[in-house]
């Protein structure tokens, strides 16, 4: 693989795509949302346990491409034990990282620092057709946390 492709399909992403973490359902699920991309067939069901405005547990099931699966897998790791305020910030950071080419270096650094491992998905910016794959799980997150509960 050459460099740009290597960035997109780096080991961390392939590892999470092949062995997704937190795959399944929360035992005490309080919130859920199914996100579907009809254009490519990717489908993600997010299962959350939220207590006192904090995500206690985050699980997911579904099927999708490597980018989609790795993004959700890394996301569930990241949002576990985070407050909803922090999750909202992460959502914004992640979307900005993938879609906003005009971020200042400082803003970019802050974003990447808050996102941690998830920052590897920045490589998706070079593949605009794949941004939807990387953000599918995040839209499910936004819907399940900030719209109605089950």
């Amino acid at each position: 693989m050459d460099e740009t492709l290597q960035e997109l399909y780096q080991d961390l992403i392939l590892d999470h795509a092949r062995n997704p973490r937190n795959f399944g359902y929360c035992q005490h699920q309080t919130h859920t949302f199914e996100a579907y991309n009809p254009l490519c067939g990717d489908r993600i069901v997010l299962s959350l346990q939220i207590r006192h405005d904090q995500i206690e547990q985050a699980y997911f099931t579904g099927e999708g491409c490597a980018i989609c699966m790795a993004s959700v897998s890394l996301m569930t790791e990241k949002i576990t034990q985070q407050s909803l305020d922090e999750v909202e910030q992460l959502f914004e950071d992640f979307i900005n990282l993938l879609t906003d080419a005009s971020l200042t270096n400082k803003a970019l650094q802050d974003c990447e620092q808050r996102l941690g491992k998830l920052a590897v998905l920045r490589a998706v910016q070079a593949f605009p057709m794949r941004v939807k794959c990387a953000t599918l799980g995040w839209h499910a997150l936004k819907k399940s946390c900030f719209e109605k509960s089950v």
Binding site: M1, L8, Y9, C40, G64, C65, C133
Partner: peptide
């Protein structure tokens, strides 16, 4: 996944449809 294949192939100039 077919989409990863299509992105990979596209990178080498190969235009194939996935979906």
């Amino acid at each position: 996944h077919p989409h990863d294949l299509a992105t990979f192939l596209d990178h080498y100039g190969i235009t194939a449809r996935a979906g």
